[in-house]
């Protein structure tokens, strides 16, 4: 009985504490300017969409969204395009010293952004990648590769070796074996890696802040972090922008919760 009560309290706390703070932001985004400025704050919004409109129109939000979609989308594609063959080679092919290669690749995920920020900035400056979306792509792909490779390699490892041997007897070389037999079978892992990579790139702030300096090129996190009004802090617009920035992630989590959980716990790497 106590166990049931404890569980009930646990569920309530988990759900309540997880959702409530953000719900407050959602509530705020649906208020009017007057309601936001009320002291003490009001609990219920009037359901106005004014802040959404002004966030989209007056605060570059459409640019931010477009940039985030472009950057996160292409990071995902590139990281998987590069990560799949690398993970396959590391998991399944004979290669002297691959233990060290894997170790080196995985250790990248531990790097503090600051440790590589200066030189990365200099490289991008030299090749004209500053304040461009493709310039941001380069560190993003690098930093998401360990996660993608880890998830994919763990999965490739579990696939039966016989299948690969059958493919080789059937006449496949290493590339064909990978593309025609192993990759289709690894679809769940690829999907998981894709979701986590996308979320990482969508949320990343540090490099986006360094590399993108013009509002037209900035991504959502930068836009939201540097959100400013003319005289006062535009909390309502900020809340609206935050809800918009978070919505795709909430949808991903609701739809693909299972994949995300398996990716995070099997891969055990933070996205």
């Amino acid at each position: 009985m106590t166990r049931r009560i404890l569980l009930g309290v646990g569920i309530l706390l988990t759900v309540g504490l997880s959702l409530f703070p953000f719900l407050w932001f959602v509530v705020t985004s649906l208020k009017t300017q007057k309601e936001v400025e009320a002291i003490p704050p009001t609990w219920w919004p009037s359901g106005s969409l004014d802040f959404y409109q002004s966030a989209l129109v007056d605060h570059h939000l459409t640019d931010y969204i477009l940039n985030s979609v472009l950057v996160a989308g292409s990071t995902t594609l590139l990281a998987l395009g590069i990560g799949i063959p690398a993970a396959y080679a590391l998991a399944r092919l004979r290669l002297p010293g691959k233990v060290w290669i894997l170790g080196a690749l995985l250790s990248i995920s531990m790097f503090p952004q600051l440790a590589i920020a200066g030189p990365v900035w200099q490289i991008l400056e030299r090749i004209g990648g500053l304040n461009t979306r493709w310039g941001l792509l380069l560190p993003y792909v690098t930093l998401t590769l360990p996660l993608a490779i880890w998830i994919l390699a763990s999965f490739f490892k579990e696939l039966p070796a016989e299948l690969e041997e059958a493919a080789r007897v059937d006449g496949c070389g290493p590339w064909q074996t990978m593309i025609r037999v192993m990759v289709p079978l690894a679809a769940p892992a690829i999907f998981t890696a894709a979701i986590l990579t996308f979320i990482y790139a969508w949320n990343e702030f540090f490099f986006a802040l360094l590399i993108l300096t013009q509002p037209e090129r900035q991504t959502l996190p930068v836009g939201i972090a540097l959100f400013q009004g003319e005289f006062t802090m535009p909390w309502g617009e900020l809340a609206a922008a935050s809800v918009i920035a978070t919505l795709p992630l909430v949808i991903l989590v609701v739809l693909f919760q299972r994949w995300i959980v398996s990716g995070l716990s099997a891969g055990a790497v933070k996205g």
Binding site: E162, E165, A166
Partner: peptide, 18 residues
């Protein structure tokens, strides 16, 4: 390589492509 040896193999766990 196996592909060029003109052999075919039946595996213990069948190894059918799922």
């Amino acid at each position: 390589s196996p592909r060029d040896r003109d052999i075919a193999m039946v595996f213990q766990h069948y190894a059918l492509y799922p």
